[in-house]
Design a binder for these strands. Structure first.
Length: 297
DNA sequence: AAGTCTTGCAACCGCGCTCAA
DNA sequence: CTTGAGCGCGGTTGCAAGACT
């Protein structure tokens, strides 16, 4: 139900609060509390609307507010809570005594979102980004982020880092083989102008050579890529791995089937078979979400 | 030194929910 | 059941300060 502002509300003061106004508000609330925000400004003698008073109190003047920079632990906590709760700033704030929803929201929009993007993670899903056209570009970011894992000490970060490493490997395999093996794919058109690395914005000569080389020459480059043993994976994952990633281990032998997974969807929804597989795979040994859910409950 | 751009944050706005009349 | 006041939440804006050219 929409409430239209009353006529006398329109001439009320807006904008930054003066120290005098702050003093009046604090003294009034300390004496009388804040039962009705709408009535408060008149009773306190403030030329502000009740909403503005409430906001000023809850976001700034409340005595239990912890001011100052967020610690690394607090940032990590916000990221973890956001992964479970999404943009429920008030809910996140309720688990962080002394911090306001507004403060957390601002921190997220100015720092944490960028931090996740730099790591190649989608700030909405907290999963590696899978936009279609930027996929290989993102892959570079994911690989770069995954490299950092070796220097991590925090168990949470190590967990995320290991996940990044496996995601990066799978995405790399998936896309390289897709490009190599699908003649109908526009990116693998024989027209040199449509070379996939041109199309995707890559002009690194090493990558160009990599693309131009026959499969038999590419094989040795993947010796260090580990595909998890199927005993460690759920049945459905196993099945898909058998027909996709495992197939890719048959380098050198002609593969008439070309039974390769589809490219990862541009949208965050898990629309392709492989993406489901990847998503399920990522959940293996991934207690984080469950942990935070139980933490919140 | 001056102008422009970027960043961070306080405050505002609009929407939706709850609850009493 | 309907209506409207009050409140809380999430998204957005505007401005000051710092960084950059």
């Amino acid at each position: 139900m929409m409430r239209t502002p009353s006529s006398d509300e329109s001439c009320l003061k807006k904008g930054p609060w003066s120290p005098e106004e702050d003093k009046i508000l604090v003294e009034y609330i300390q004496k009388h509390g804040h039962r009705s925000w709408r009535a408060l400004p008149k009773l306190a003698g403030l030329n502000r609307c009740g909403k503005s008073c409430r906001l000023r109190w809850t976001n700034y003047l409340r005595p239990d507010i912890k001011r100052g920079k967020f610690s690394h632990e607090e940032e990590q906590l916000i990221i973890n809570l956001h992964a479970v709760l999404g943009n429920k700033w008030a809910a996140i704030a309720s688990h962080m005594p002394g911090r306001t929803d507004n403060e957390i929201k601002n921190l997220w929009n100015t720092h944490l979102k960028k931090k996740l993007l730099q790591m190649g993670l989608d700030p909405v899903t907290h999963r590696p980004r899978t936009d279609h056209l930027n996929l290989l570009n993102n892959l570079q970011q994911i690989l770069a982020a995954a490299k950092i894992v070796s220097s991590l000490t925090n168990p949470c970060e190590i967990n995320n880092g290991l996940r990044l490493q496996s995601d990066a490997k799978l995405l790399l395999l998936q896309n390289i083989f897709q490009l190599k093996s699908t003649p109908s794919h526009p990116a693998s058109n024989s027209d040199p102008l449509l070379n996939p690395f041109d199309v995707l914005g890559f002009n690194n000569p090493n990558l160009q050579n990599f693309y131009e080389s026959p499969l038999s020459q590419i094989q040795p480059h993947f010796q260090n890529f580990e595909v998890p043993h199927h005993d460690q994976l759920p049945t459905q994952v196993c099945g898909n791995l058998n027909s996709s990633i495992r197939e890719s281990h048959k380098f050198g032998s002609p593969s008439p089937s070309n039974s390769l997974p589809n490219l990862v969807s541009a949208s965050p929804e898990r629309s392709t078979t492989f993406e489901l597989t990847l998503g399920d795979f990522m959940d293996i040994e991934e207690p984080t979400d469950t942990y935070w859910k139980s933490f919140i409950e």
